[in-house]
Nucleic acid binder design. Structure first.
Length: 321
DNA sequence: ACGCGCTTTAGTCCTCGCCT
DNA sequence: AGGCGAGGACTAAAGCGCGT
């Protein structure tokens, strides 16, 4: 018959730790370090070499994308964060095509057959129908264009959410996937205040500007996306930065836009052209002159547009050349 | 760099024809 | 009959090319 002490040694799960102090354990790796339990994760870590000897691999932390404290507490979940930018929201499992285990050793034929079956079902589940495959293509297109335009990840997420809504509302039917993907990216940029002109978006897209504009209007109308006209001031920092103009010019350009907009000059005009003209005027007023050609290159409008808008603006401002 | 006249393009509205 | 897309007409803005 075994003694109670021996039984506890054989079955560590039932050990009553409050009654018997835990024996100090020594790290095998550095041969001398003491293993201590970390307070936050409950891991057994060597105090000298930092090796984690025991610990849980599951992160029980709160949902990181919850919006407020209470939501964070309620929405605790594990695993990788979900993302709208992937058709399966990033929750997929990748099964390697190589028939090898984690150490690179080849696996048995039984295991190989099992992995083949799992791989097949994984693919079937991942893209279960044509809609899923289209979504997969559209979202990868959105990501490609967003990367080319240096659009932040948060805006890509918004674009993907709009695309999913368009898909749910059956707005894609009869239109090209690329066209809808591009227009949702353009819409997301406008909604998030990261303005990119139709020309800029069209430059990285596989569809024409005309098609993008038409699809954008349709999607915005059908999904009731409340879109304000782009404020030309949104373009000022980016254009000024590319033209290496000072903060003073930016402030002056914004002032010109504010004053002339109040007088109704902006109505019906292209925001990029309007911003470009204000920057050109501001550069003259601040003695950091840039030519109309330089400004037009950056703003992707013609010199003529800058000239026309510039003349109207200085007239409205009461400035004499 | 800028002005000017002409051309091109985009947006909007409307009509027409096809399909269900 | 009603919905929907194609296409034409019209307007305004933007672009082009040339001269100064």
């Amino acid at each position: 018959m075994a003694s109670p002490t021996r039984q506890r040694e054989r079955d560590p799960e039932t050990t009553d730790k409050t009654q018997e102090p835990e024996r100090e354990r020594v790290c095998d790796e550095c041969d001398g370090g003491t293993l201590v339990k970390s307070e936050d994760q409950g891991e057994l870590v060597c105090d000298q070499c930092g090796l984690i000897v025991e610990g849980t691999n599951i992160d029980h932390g709160p949902e990181w994308r919850a919006f407020n404290h209470s939501e964070r507490q309620n929405k605790s979940r594990v695993g990788a964060p979900t993302t709208q930018t992937m058709h399966d929201k990033g929750l997929t499992t990748s099964i390697d095509w190589k028939n090898q285990d984690a150490y690179g050793r080849s696996i048995s034929s039984d295991k190989r057959n099992q992995m083949r079956r799992l791989r097949k079902w994984q693919e079937r589940i991942r893209t279960k129908d044509a809609g899923e495959r289209n979504l997969q293509f559209a979202l990868s297109e959105t990501d490609r264009m967003a990367s080319s335009l240096a659009i932040p990840r948060s805006v890509r997420e918004v674009a993907c959410v709009i695309y999913r809504r368009a898909l749910d509302e059956d707005l894609i039917r009869g239109r090209s996937i690329e066209g809808v993907a591009t227009s949702t990216l353009y819409a997301a940029c406008r909604m998030e205040g990261i303005p990119r002109s139709l020309e800029e978006v069209a430059a990285v897209s596989r569809v024409e500007r005309k098609e993008i504009g038409r699809t954008y209007r349709y999607v915005a109308q059908e999904l009731n996306l409340e879109m304000e006209p782009v404020n030309p001031k949104k373009y000022v920092p980016r254009f000024c930065s590319e033209l290496e103009l000072s903060e003073e010019v930016q402030v002056k350009a914004n002032e010109i836009i504010d004053t002339t907009t109040e007088k109704g000059l902006l109505s019906g005009k292209s925001p990029t052209g309007y911003a470009a003209a204000a920057i050109y005027a501001a550069s003259l007023l601040c003695n950091e002159k840039k030519t109309q050609r330089e400004v037009s290159d950056v703003a992707q409008v013609t010199e003529v547009t800058i000239r026309n808008r510039y003349q109207e603006q200085i007239e409205a401002m009461g400035i004499h050349e």
